[in-house]
Amino acid sequence: MQPAITFEEFWNWDSAAEALPQLLSTFVETTLLITVVGTLIAVTLGLLLAVLVEALPGIVTKPLRFVMDFIRMTPLIVQLIFVSYLVPVSWPLLWVGTVVIGVHYSTYMAESYIAGIASVDKGQWEAARALSLSQGRTWRDVVIPQGIRATLPSLGNWAIAMFKDTPFLFGIGVIEMVTEAQQYGAATFRYNEAFTIAGLIFLVASLVTAFAVRRLEKALVY
């Protein structure tokens, strides 16, 4: 029988202390940056797509729907690699990957927005027409605020999902936190510490995001 693995063989506190600063630095400089900027792109573009789908005639929305479905149903890693070969070599792959992941998740958020818009009571539209509000003002002041309130929990979930998908950027050579953990393990043969710390950072950041979304959701309830 093989001897049981001791705790010292499984976990080394010195290696953990050495890996932690490197992983935290990569998390802030790369993983968090990708998530924040990607979420801003997804939230903004997703809302624009939802409004266009709901406001424009079918002859325009059907091709738009097709493009959205194509992006949503194509694997993110494939999109990242494909786009990375299309753009000029001089373009920073970090920003290329951030835009791709933002556009990818904008299609998911657009569907959430569409559901939120559909949940707005028809009486709100009728009241806006009775007040002679323009279509633009009706969307801006009546429909979109209510739709966003209904959509907020779903948007938060998509933001967390995007955060957990940032490791896919390794496919185009971006060194994010998981890749940093893998490289640390390859250099020191201490994979357990590096990947455990990376997983804990993902967990803590996801919990903080979920808590912030819940607080924002409660603040917007009226």
Results as ranks from 00 to 15, higher is better:
residue 69 D to T: 08
residue 75 P to S: 12
residue 79 Q to W: 11
residue 73 M to N: 13
residue 171 G to K: 08
residue 189 F to G: 06
residue 99 V to S: 04
residue 133 L to H: 01
residue 74 T to D: 15
residue 160 I to E: 00
residue 163 F to I: 03
residue 161 A to W: 04
residue 123 G to Y: 11
residue 64 L to S: 07
residue 186 A to L: 08
residue 187 A to I: 04
residue 94 L to T: 05
residue 134 S to F: 00
residue 184 Y to C: 06
residue 107 T to Q: 04
residue 61 T to P: 03
residue 110 A to Y: 04
residue 160 I to C: 01
residue 119 S to C: 03
residue 68 M to I: 10
residue 173 G to V: 06
residue 195 F to K: 07
residue 138 T to K: 04
residue 181 A to D: 05
residue 106 S to Q: 02
residue 159 A to H: 00
residue 145 P to R: 01
residue 187 A to T: 07
residue 162 M to K: 08
residue 180 E to T: 12
residue 114 I to A: 15
residue 109 M to Q: 14
residue 147 G to D: 01
residue 146 Q to T: 02
residue 156 G to Y: 09
residue 59 I to A: 14
residue 116 G to S: 11
residue 87 V to Y: 03
residue 137 R to M: 10
residue 117 I to T: 05
residue 119 S to E: 06
residue 168 F to N: 03
residue 193 E to Q: 14
residue 159 A to M: 14
residue 143 V to L: 04
residue 124 Q to H: 02
residue 94 L to R: 03
residue 117 I to A: 00
residue 113 Y to D: 05
residue 188 T to R: 09
residue 128 A to R: 05
residue 101 I to Y: 06
residue 168 F to L: 15
residue 187 A to Q: 15
residue 73 M to A: 13
residue 96 V to A: 06
residue 146 Q to C: 02
residue 185 G to W: 01
residue 143 V to W: 01
residue 180 E to W: 02
residue 194 A to L: 06
residue 165 D to E: 14
residue 115 A to E: 06
residue 181 A to T: 07
residue 131 L to R: 08
residue 59 I to M: 05
residue 89 V to F: 15
residue 184 Y to E: 09
